[in-house]
Computed example of a mutant assay.
Amino acid sequence: MTIRNAISQIWYTRCPVPTPVGLATQLGLLDETFAREGITLNSIIDSKDRNIRSSHFNHHLDYSFRHGGNVPPIRARSEGNPTRLVGITWTDEFQAIITLPGTGIRATRDLVGRRFGIARRPPGIVDFMAATALKGLVSALSLEGLTHKDVEIVDIALPDSVLDNRDGPQLYGLRNRQAYGPEIAALLRGEVDAIYVKGTPGISVANLFATHTVAEFGFHPDPKIRINSGSPRILTVDERFAEDRPDLVAKLIETLKRASAWAESHPDDVRRFVAREVGASEEVVASANGPDLHKHLGIGLEPDLVEAIGHYKDFLHEWGFLASNFDIDAWVDHRPWALLDTRAVA
């Protein structure tokens, strides 16, 4: 193959959730793979430069890849940002509607006419947490034949962008602020009656405040109920990376597949590595992601996975989170996978 562009560094980023990228990073596999090519990996999310960090959400950096929640990359694509969808991982996680004891809300039908709180960030970066909470609400209500019109949606205004307050004493030495603080505070003040939570932070706050679970559906048998910002998660690369060095994109995917294969035979190590990734205890990880987490860190581009992303993209468009609609199939890039298949045959 003729290399059309030699590069010395690649930017990458991942969300603090279970992903093959996070696993491959902790195992040293990604550094090893790209070092053989004379390439240095630089972390977007750990940069001190706000403009660089913003690429975690808008994917603007050339020669970069991202693996994590799907709302920001879907929004970036809807804005015309030239990226390619090259891999999808489906790792189910705890998703629930919770309330405080004493509200009288015991089941989903009790939400009718009650106040459902959704945290809202200032305009700018797509409000992925609001999108996540809305999809969770819609999913839960649909199981009882209800819609969002059956509840009162109450906005919980947040003052800062997700790019702000990345350091300082208010974080107490941690990298990120614990999720769902404003939502829980609104519950405690009696301003809302119920909220949506998910993943390890959702389990943690539900446990801390001894909340009542109104509905839990993160492992529901119907995939369209489970589909949300983190189910599934997507691997995207920018267009220059995809066009100039498809061979390196193929090596990236190959490395992630190695990490996924390793995970299947190392369940205890996976739980420990993910706990480090998400900033939670192994007990919380086991509760949030289930006992078979190690079996659900694979990556692919099968039609059902692409369809799931399309389903959530349509939800985001319907609810006004996208700049415009777009064709999911035109976003998907199968070329790196074809390169891998060619190597396997050879």
Rank of each mutant, 00 (worst) to 15 (best):
residue 1 M to L: 14
residue 2 T to A: 12
residue 3 I to D: 09
residue 7 I to Y: 13
residue 12 Y to W: 15
residue 15 C to D: 15
residue 20 P to Y: 02
residue 20 P to H: 06
residue 21 V to P: 03
residue 23 L to R: 02
residue 25 T to A: 15
residue 26 Q to W: 12
residue 27 L to G: 04
residue 28 G to E: 14
residue 31 D to K: 11
residue 31 D to H: 15
residue 32 E to V: 00
residue 35 A to L: 09
residue 38 G to F: 11
residue 40 T to P: 00
residue 41 L to E: 09
residue 46 D to R: 09
residue 49 D to V: 09
residue 55 S to Q: 00
residue 62 D to L: 00
residue 64 S to T: 11
residue 66 R to W: 09
residue 66 R to F: 15
residue 68 G to I: 01
residue 71 V to N: 05
residue 80 G to Y: 13
residue 80 G to M: 00
residue 82 P to T: 10
residue 83 T to G: 07
residue 88 I to C: 02
residue 88 I to F: 03
residue 89 T to R: 01
residue 91 T to W: 00
residue 98 I to E: 04
residue 99 T to K: 04
residue 99 T to C: 14
residue 103 T to I: 02
residue 105 I to T: 02
residue 105 I to C: 01
residue 113 G to F: 10
residue 115 R to V: 06
residue 116 F to V: 13
residue 118 I to A: 05
residue 118 I to S: 02
residue 119 A to S: 14
residue 121 R to N: 03
residue 122 P to H: 13
residue 125 I to W: 05
residue 126 V to H: 04
residue 126 V to Q: 05
residue 138 V to H: 09
residue 142 S to K: 08
residue 144 E to M: 07
residue 146 L to V: 10
residue 150 D to W: 08
residue 151 V to S: 13
residue 153 I to D: 04
residue 157 A to M: 11
residue 161 S to G: 10
residue 164 D to Y: 01
residue 169 P to L: 11
residue 170 Q to D: 15
residue 173 G to Q: 04
residue 176 N to S: 12
residue 176 N to P: 00
residue 177 R to C: 11
residue 183 E to K: 04
residue 183 E to D: 13
residue 185 A to C: 01
residue 188 L to D: 08
residue 191 E to H: 14
residue 191 E to F: 09
residue 192 V to W: 00
residue 197 V to K: 03
residue 202 G to A: 09
residue 208 L to W: 12
residue 209 F to A: 06
residue 213 T to M: 06
residue 216 E to D: 14
residue 216 E to I: 01
residue 218 G to E: 04
residue 219 F to D: 12
residue 221 P to M: 05
residue 221 P to V: 06
residue 223 P to T: 05
residue 224 K to C: 12
residue 226 R to C: 08
residue 227 I to M: 11
residue 231 S to M: 13
residue 232 P to M: 03
residue 232 P to Q: 05
residue 232 P to K: 05
residue 243 E to G: 04
residue 245 R to F: 07
residue 246 P to F: 09
residue 253 I to Q: 02
residue 254 E to Y: 14
residue 254 E to V: 05
residue 254 E to H: 14
residue 256 L to P: 02
residue 261 A to T: 14
residue 268 D to T: 11
residue 269 D to H: 13
residue 273 F to N: 01
residue 273 F to Y: 13
residue 276 R to V: 00
residue 276 R to N: 11
residue 277 E to A: 11
residue 280 A to F: 09
residue 282 E to Q: 14
residue 283 E to Q: 10
residue 286 A to S: 14
residue 292 D to R: 10
residue 298 G to K: 02
residue 302 E to V: 07
residue 303 P to G: 00
residue 306 V to R: 12
residue 307 E to P: 06
residue 312 Y to H: 11
residue 315 F to D: 03
residue 319 W to G: 00
residue 319 W to Y: 14
residue 323 A to N: 11
residue 324 S to Y: 11
residue 326 F to E: 07
residue 329 D to Y: 14
residue 335 R to F: 15
residue 338 A to T: 14
